[in-house]
Design a protein around this nucleic acid. Structure first.
Lengths: 207, 207, 207, 207
DNA sequence: TATGAATGAGCTTTCATTCAT
DNA sequence: CATGAATGAAAGCTCATTCAT
């Protein structure tokens, strides 16, 4: 005997998976219904439109994400620890809402232009502020390297984390925390061994 | 009087931009035609179908990319230098064919399932072989850290590079080579200052 | 505790109002249910179908109307008095069943083609016979003008009366009898002052 | 070799007839297309939507109607002659655009609530001003009876005229001018013979 | 009596594609 | 080469209706 909100959540989860796998536009409402074991029209008993399903998936995900992020940002950690905590929370979010993150990754850029999804752009800004601010603090504290373009570093961190949603599958051999640790290790200390001060990219010249 | 192949290339470039901006499925053939200053039906004089436009964009991009990659791989460089060269070439490719790369990034996963786009999966495999092999060689040579999950590192490198296509705009303040250098600096040596042997991710524990 | 027939009548009244306001086709069964404070499905406990609701509204209205008309026609009045009585009864009917009359006005023409609503066409014929007969009798008795096209006069009278259902609201400042009196005054004696033997429509020539 | 606007006009005429016969809501786009000898989807090459077809039908009709009305109102005629001219123009309009008038008659009341069809409400107001003003002038000039409720007379005139669209068929035995003359004769001078000062409605008492 | 959930037919609309000119 | 007009399949959505509870 499942209470009504349960059914709704099931449908949203199903829809999120299909959206993530095939893209929002390419996903038919009928496909979602099939996957949920009902007819296309029946979905409209639960939701207003295909778009409102997408909306609910994305806003639910962002609400939850910001709950975690805000807790981290309010904890008064140092810059490095803040980055570590944000990355870890991000991978946990991928673990919990992988499909939602994948959809966000693929669709948010053009969705953000629409009135209805303006919150995506807002979230994006808060996002940027939080990460950029932490990186700047870290540079000031001499925890992060000063010779890097900080906006580039921000994009690098951001993408590095979220793009994982495209291949991560929950229940795999690595826990989200383990993946976070490895990612942080690479991002913070690099994949090269010890003391390599300068990359030698210029060594390779074009044809 | 421009020769036909020229017009074709223009149309492909236009189509690639629109596909990149809105997604393949969400892009209508009419939108492409509008952007090109013709009517939808007229596109069919130049191309068989919408899908064949996509096909030509992606295969052209991959052909060119592999030309460069093969040159790098045949040069007999060390593992670190190989990685540096591959990354540099990748950013140059983004510079030249940004939209094609963005499309590849967004659509290749589900396109690869189709017969017609099987070459995407093949390319993906060669890709993986080249990068993984180089990383393994680097670990053996003690150029890269041995304590990292090498498949994770591969995905990390791959995604880090290509995802840049989503924000990179040619003609900006950084040349592709400069961006490559910064990216490599982060990936190889990390963003943290000097001697941090261990990330402290475990410092942040969840409930 | 209201007896069932009472509830039924309430629902019919509600449905009639919504049908009248938005048209039969444009009215959803859910809208009626909303207005009645129940769910759409629940209406089907009381009625077989949306169409049967419409049927009951229209047939109830016509049954009642004919009761009154038959009484008038059986009363042996003169032509002018008959017309006056019919018009007065019509306005009373509008007062009592405004929405039903409005629905009849809007929908009867195409409904009459359906088997189920054949009684609309029959009623229409009896209607025509009663009014036309009275008018003819009036012309013969030299009570009504002989120079008018009698079928045109019939349509004129008929429409003049029923169309009032589209703006009449019960409880307004004029009683139905008062409106009937004014209408009859216009129809019988005209709106012009006294002795205007000939309209001068021909005075207006086209451009 | 018909020029493009011709095709458009044909389609609008076809659509208007179907809308008039079955009601806007009950008319399917497919039905219109059938009647026009094409497939439903093909209509969308010519029009944005079903609603925009309706819009174009109604606004075209009203534009034309007001051209005529304005000419009449600017002609400086006396009240009676103005009424005669307006009625005559109205019947001519019914003759030319019968279906449009029928649609207007049936649908304008609820359409006027929508933003897009606000011009219907505006037109309605101008309408009222023109007719009411003329009637008032006529009463002041002792051309029209002073003992009648002028708003009632206005509704009476207005409805009397337009409702004719529901039965009028062009090419019948009466020209629009002839019908106008008969209508005006009834409206101005009444259907009763000569000197009947008072209707005797009160002679019929209710049960 | 009424509800909640679903059905299924049919609707408006979109869009890749075709083709005579 | 390009246009204008159409096709036809499929999409999102609506809604009268059903039915177990």
């Amino acid at each position: 005997m499942t209470p009504p909100p349960e059914r709704r959540r099931e449908l949203l989860a199903t829809a999120a998976e299909v959206f993530a796998a095939h893209g929002y536009k390419a996903t038919t409402v009928r496909r979602i219904a099939d996957e949920a074991g009902m007819l296309a029209g029946s979905l409209y008993y639960h939701f207003d439109s295909k778009e409102s399903i997408l909306d609910e998936i994305l806003s639910t995900f962002l609400d939850e994400l910001w709950d975690r992020y805000d807790a981290v940002l309010a904890a008064g950690l140092g810059p490095r620890e803040t980055i570590e905590a944000l990355v870890t929370e991000s991978f946990r979010e991928i673990d919990r809402h992988g499909p939602a993150v994948a959809i966000y990754q693929k669709e948010s850029r053009h969705l953000a232009k629409q009135q209805r999804f303006a919150y995506l752009a807002e979230s994006q800004e808060r996002f940027e502020k939080a990460w950029l601010g932490t990186l700047e603090r870290g540079v000031a504290d001499r925890v992060f390297r000063a010779d890097l373009d900080i906006r580039l570093a921000y994009r690098f961190l951001r993408d590095t984390v979220w793009v994982a949603a495209s291949w991560y599958r929950p229940g795999g051999q690595h826990s989200p925390e383990e993946i976070a640790r490895q990612y942080l290790s690479m991002v913070l200390d690099g994949i090269a061994v010890g003391e390599n001060p300068e990359p030698t990219a210029k060594a390779h010249s074009d044809s």
